[in-house]
Write a protein that binds this DNA or RNA. Structure first.
Lengths: 205, 205
DNA sequence: GTCTATATTCCGATAGAC
DNA sequence: GTCTATCGGAATATAGAC
């Protein structure tokens, strides 16, 4: 089987890179073609319109996400740790596709949102079957989302902020929560709410 | 003191709404002017350029964030619970500003990212002084970010997904973690890592 | 398949009337 | 302060040569 035409992939690479670096607004067909090293006509041969280019990115994203799900399910560290650890990175091809798709989010164009939500839902299903407590599974999803959001905020030049946790710290805390829940037993799921962030001080009644 | 000119605020409102609904690409000066009910010339009187319009949005965002910090510090439920609870909403004026600014993120334009990172840092400082354990404070930041990211993903028509937790559930889990940490004492901060997501099963060696 | 050249529409910004 | 009219340039997309 001959290798697939490289031009298509180069165009998608450039499209993603420009979306992340310069945003959707400046990511014009001209700019993508130039960054990919092809002419605009050449680009439009592979992707007949801007919309088709977006669809190509979303299809690539789904393919990469499906492959990632397989790795997640079979990770020796467990799906939860795998999910948290990989959420911290913004380097893998899947991360780049996710970041790029995020730049295309808009309410009036549901396609991108649907794909991202679908990937999200798949992750949750794996977490849900791997972690005993559904609430903990959902919390892990939130933490992963939060780490991913931090990746969208951080630029190349800005150093790590004080609020940026490292992966080991997060894994440790989640592990502690999982063990705490296991100890309290599966039957007890509803605890009375208590104010947080006021060490040892009782809230006013 | 006469009320400040309403046109400026109406323009900023329309700018935010369009950024959220239709993305940065379709949020042109024409579209903003039309949505705000003014002419393009009228818009450009208040904001002399597209860049000035963005700066106006960021200034509004900082003002709203500063006001929110005051509420956060004095919340009777405590800063941590306040932070988590308000992160779930995407309805307040501050939420709209945050969502809109997110649509403007791009690496080559550091200004938006700096403002968002600054707001983030302020939140962390309050959490840090309210929660005993810095690692827990950082985890709460992540959870809030994750809830906010979920808000950027969810559209108006799509129902809540299975992976979407409610606020009470999250508050309960964080509360449990805080109490678990308090019980184990402040001195013990480093625990050996252990695989997660594999209930009671030991990982292969 | 890939290119250049071009058609058409639209964007940001300016000029100037009121 | 708000408007209309318009300029110069850039965007998407098409046509057609090679």
């Amino acid at each position: 089987m001959p290798p697939p035409p490289a031009a298509r992939e180069k165009v998608l690479d450039a499209f993603q890179r420009l979306l992340i670096e310069r945003g959707a607004r400046e990511t014009t067909l001209d700019a993508v073609a130039k960054a990919a090293g092809v002419s605009k006509g050449g680009l439009l041969y592979h992707f007949g319109s801007r919309e088709a280019l977006i669809e190509g990115l979303l299809i690539r994203l789904k393919t990469q996400a499906d492959a990632d799900l397989v790795s997640m399910k079979s990770a020796t560290e467990g799906p939860a740790a795998y999910y948290i650890r990989t959420s911290a990175s913004a380097q893998t091809p899947l991360d780049l596709s996710l970041l790029a798709a995020t730049r295309l989010l808009q309410r009036s164009h549901p396609r991108t949102r649907e794909v991202l939500a679908g990937v999200h839902e798949q992750w949750y299903k794996v977490l849900r079957s791997a972690v005993g407590d559904p609430a903990v599974a959902r919390l892990i999803m939130l933490i992963g989302d939060g780490m991913y959001y931090g990746a969208t905020l951080s630029g190349a030049e800005s150093g790590p902020s004080a609020a940026a946790p490292d992966v080991g710290e997060v894994l440790e805390l989640v592990d502690e929560l999982v063990r705490s829940r296991e100890a309290s037993g599966p039957g007890q799921m509803t605890l009375p709410a208590r104010p947080m962030g006021q060490n040892r001080a009782e809230p006013p009644v």
